[in-house]
Design a protein around this nucleic acid. Sequence first.
RNA 1: GCCCCCGUGGCGGAAUUGGUAGACGCGCUCGACUCAAAAUCGAGUUCCGCAAGGAGUGCCGGUUCGACUCCGGCCGGGGGCACCA
Length: 873
Amino acid sequence: MAARFNPLEADARWQKVWEEQGTFHASGDGDRPRAYVLEMFPYPSGRIHMGHVRNYTMGDVLARYRRMAGFDVLHPMGWDAFGMPAENAAMEKKVHPGEWTRSNIDTMRRQLKRLGFALDWSRELATCDPSYYGHEQALFLDLHEAGLVYRKQSEVNWDPVDMTVLANEQVIDGRGWRSNALVERRKLSQWFLRITDFADELLDGLGRLDQWPDKVRLMQENWIGKSQGMRFRFDLAPGEKQEGPSTGSGRTEGGSEPESVRAEPVEALPSSFEVFTTRPDTIFGASFAAISPDHPIALALAEGNSALADFIAECKQGGTTAAELETAEKKGFDTGARVIHPLDPDWTLPLYVANFVLMDYGTGAIFGCPAHDQRDLDFARKYGLPVTRVVSPSPEEADEPIGDEAYSGPGRLVNSRFLDGFTAEDAIREVIARAEAEGWGEGTTVWRLRDWGVSRQRYWGTPIPIVHCGACGPVAVPRDRLPVVLPEDIDFETPGNPLDRHPTWSKVDCPDCGAPARRETDTLDTFVDSSWYFIRFASQPADAPFDRAEAERWLPVDQYIGGVEHAILHLLYARFWTRALRHIGKLDVDEPFKGLFTQGMVTHETYRSPDGRWLNPDEVEKRDGRLVVLATGESVETGRIEKMSKAKKNVIDPTPIVDQYGADAVRWFMLSDSPPERDLEWSEAGIQGSWRFVQRIWRLAADEAGRGSSTWLGAGDDVALDRKVHRTIAAVGANIEALAFNKAVANLYELTNSLEKAPASPSRSRAVEILIRLAAPMVPHLAEEAWSAMGQEGLIAHAEWPTADPALLVEEEVTIAVQVNGKLRDTLTAPKGTDKETLEKMALASEKVLRILEGKPPRKVIVVPDRLVNIVA
RNA sequence: GCCCCCGUGGCGGAAUUGGUAGACGCGCUCGACUCAAAAUCGAGUUCCGCAAGGAGUGCCGGUUCGACUCCGGCCGGGGGCACCA
């Protein structure tokens, strides 16, 4: 056996063996228990980065561990291959998005294979492949038939130069990130999925996801944002112009929104409108009503009021960034109209248009109760509106005036006529009951969650399988004509969506009436692609998206691992999609991911030259204990430790590192030190430490392999070492199960330290063999090499995970801490299970204790068996 | 503004239900091997102190025989959401 482990030679050899033998194929038959381990599939951006390496190493350890523990493991990999970067590359580098993407996939697949991940490559998929997105189109049509897809006008960020729609994060200071042109708000007809129909289910389901981080569940809960309250009608007081019939009150029930009210032409002034409140109990504290600048009543009133029209226009200006909103002044415009209080026909309130009322939350209108809402209070003070307390924490404070702070605490109703003396809770119930009985309002629930707009005016995505016919309207593409394949001959020379400009692609006959029609040229949000790929991994027939029974055998994913940046959107959409499939009877799974783990980022120091330029780590060198620029010798300023990014030039490409140290050292480093949920700082010293450890294990194995069993003949068992080994078996298994890889790594270091110190014995030989098996999920190439060199049969990937002997886990002797007044003064050793009296006697006999007690009797002695004795002096 | 998480040696971090704080790694110091270096091995490494001993888990207080752990109040760092009625 060689003195040193040579990863460059061994890695490739074992990777070839695994591939040829199909070692990591999920069989899906037999009666072994199943485990589905999945990491979030990558976007093929060009090359693998350290974040990928960390993510996939974690999943790999778990997958390999489960396989050794007897599971049939599904551990697949694929590519989230649609998206904007491919189109950007097409524009910048004049390459076809498909070509660019597929070449990136080839590169990254090679890089992943170089790391020796135990993946079932036979199930590899790419979302940009018609054999994937064609099935997605079919599923889209299924949801469409089930009424879960609808079309409505919606505002988008429109870049007039690039002629494209921008996501919110692509709008920087009101300008397009690429064109720098002022972004316009445009209304487009877009496709929506009715995720709000599932809001309650999605919220409710979070409570049962006990293997998800609390943080993520909380984020989703906030995102869904359930608010219970009441919706009620305000009638406009007579005296205002009221032309034409009432258009009713705006919205229909539930999450299904009609073609937007905003799209209607401004004609008549409605005679009433609805507001939403979570505090119907404070209804007698009302002092004004306010509507959004986008509200139909505001638009109608502005018709004859140029000052109001100006105000509305002003509201539309200004940024929508968080900082701007926070500092933006709360402004209102008194329309002069008044509304009638629903509980007193003689009481009218002024109607304002206010810049802080959002049209797309609730009903786009509110009533203001300044005494008990801070924003309403600020508004009332500004415009000199009355402030009436209606909730009081105690009877004495009933007439206490409200100062600068609104009172939002508990209490009983005051100044509220028939509600006086009610608790807030009872008052809410009472007001809702009354409103419902009298027909002017009702209890309701409002969600922050909006329906999911899935239309993207982009080329590189899944075509939406719809044809627009002048006579028939939007018509589904018949199933036998799926997939609707993206055209390859496209042109990126002119801005805008190439599908729109394609000479022939969009021209089709209507599937219903045969008349000339036009294909939908929008493509689907790429989050749709990632909402069901884990199902396709589990089952991939050619003629259907998945086979229900086969998919149900694997799902839900037992452990899903990825970045916390997907805590909301991807994970919420995938949860929705899965529930939607269940709703339409395609798949009986409610939650797609049973266990979720969000791993931390890989970070690195940043470096700057004296002139403030960011420097690459390879431009920097340590000389005489300080960092200098390699080329010039100037001193380097060490910046913050940050997530690796091109902008900060602190990216370490994994490939050269793997070439230098081998896959196992890199994998080991990714698991060491930092807890997996926290950030890991890449360092040269760290990878060298990992390399040393790989060689230390190798030396132990080589030592045992070279020794043969004869050398320790006559030596007895090393019981202390046996105990250490079995404690380690238990600890490593538990820590991998808990994804506490840094602790499992520490366990293996400890065992290695013990083995290096232990004299040769049968125990030691067994221990080294067990160490190799315990380390196999983390450093698989080394483990295979050592396993075979030690003369073991078969692959270690198929070897059994060692079992801890319970008898060896029990200590015979324990160390007892001896404290005086809670401070450690001495320790003593006693057989496990020694009774309290004996321990107390032993502790009181301690010389150190006697010295501190100075002959005085202890006041009290606390004995915790097998743990400690605390003497209270 | 609202909600959540985290503060432990020079650094990354360990520490079942409150029960010997600092496992393990990195770094550093000294030593061995070597002509020398690398590699490797051995010893040490929370702070103050020669030692005995004392202090110590962001700060202040509380509960307890006993607090990194529980409670209250501050300070600092990070994250999520955000004119949400």
